Computed example of a mutant assay.
Amino acid sequence: MTNQHEEESVWPVQDQIASYLRDRILNGDIPAGEKLPSSRDLHAQFGAAAQTIRNAIITLEKEGLAYTRQGAGVFARQHRQRAMTPAAYKNPPADGGKYQWIAAAERKGLSGRSELLAVEETVPPAAVREAFGLEKEGKALLRRQVLYLDDQPCELVEVFFPLELAHGTPIAEPRKIKGGAGRVLLEAGLPPLRCVDKVAARWPTPEQAKALRMPTKLPVLRQFRVTYSVDDMPIQAEIMAKAGHLYELEYEF
């Protein structure tokens, strides 16, 4: 008999099982500490062999979503999926202090920090060139950094700036900036007045997978943001990648 998951599916069965269980754990349908469906139940539902089911469980264990208790079964682990609120972090801190996302994390009892990876002139991706009105080989200033919560990488951020705005300012220097690059632009008379976000789920690039320590083959949430200032001038473009199984985006309208 053909089960519902076999029809028109191109996924390996172990990936189907892992996806099914992952969704139920992250949605709260299987709370932390509750036992996952048995191998017998999963076999009846997916028609999978015992080793295939075990491979799916190993995937969830690597992702920190499940654990095996010898002789008792497999249980959902307390996961650390967190909601990020990007719209709340667009403005630089008024006093040149901590990034707003770090201050927000500390209010929740978490510790946040950033690690600067690179500051360089580069030919940016096509979407950034289009936003800045650059030619095909036109360059922008890139600042790349990893953001951490409780010493776990949560986001790889690539921020591009028009060269004419970055040259001669701390933005072009290979060091962290107190209050962030947004503070430098604000003091130059270029406040962030409008942001446009595009969010998509994509397979991570090798660089993203390494920076975020992706444990298995999982998508990332890719957020592309262009920030505009006075006279609708684009002042920066960001590509932000978050581990899809650990973070979700929250917007309030």
Rank of each mutant, 00 (worst) to 15 (best):
E238G: 06
D41W: 09
P93D: 03
L60R: 00
E158L: 10
W203E: 15
A103H: 06
E250N: 15
V157C: 07
P192N: 07
E137Q: 14
T2P: 14
A131F: 00
E137A: 15
L21V: 04
E6M: 09
L163T: 08
P170E: 05
G96N: 02
L116D: 08
D15S: 08
Q14R: 07
P162W: 01
R129Q: 10
E238S: 15
N3Q: 09
E207M: 06
G96D: 01
T205P: 02
I171L: 07
E63I: 01
R22S: 11
A166R: 00
E164P: 03
A241Y: 02
H245V: 08
E155N: 13
R222H: 15
D232R: 07
R107M: 12
P234G: 04
K178L: 09
R113C: 04
S229Y: 08
E250A: 15
L110A: 09
A87T: 14
S229D: 12
L156M: 12
G179T: 04
I235K: 00
R143S: 03
I171W: 00
L26D: 02
E238D: 10
E207T: 15
E120D: 10
E252L: 08
E8R: 09
E137D: 13
M84A: 06
T59Q: 08
H79Q: 09
V157P: 00
I171M: 01
Q81D: 05
N3S: 11
K136Y: 12
W11H: 11
R225N: 07
R40P: 04
L110T: 01
E173F: 07
Q81M: 12
Q16S: 14
L65I: 05
L212S: 03
P174I: 14
A181L: 03
T52E: 14
M214I: 15
G33D: 02
M233K: 12
D29K: 08
D23V: 13
A66M: 05
P125V: 06
Y99S: 14
N91T: 10
A72K: 14
Q208W: 02
F253W: 14
N91H: 12
R213L: 11
E6N: 11
L36I: 09
A127Y: 08
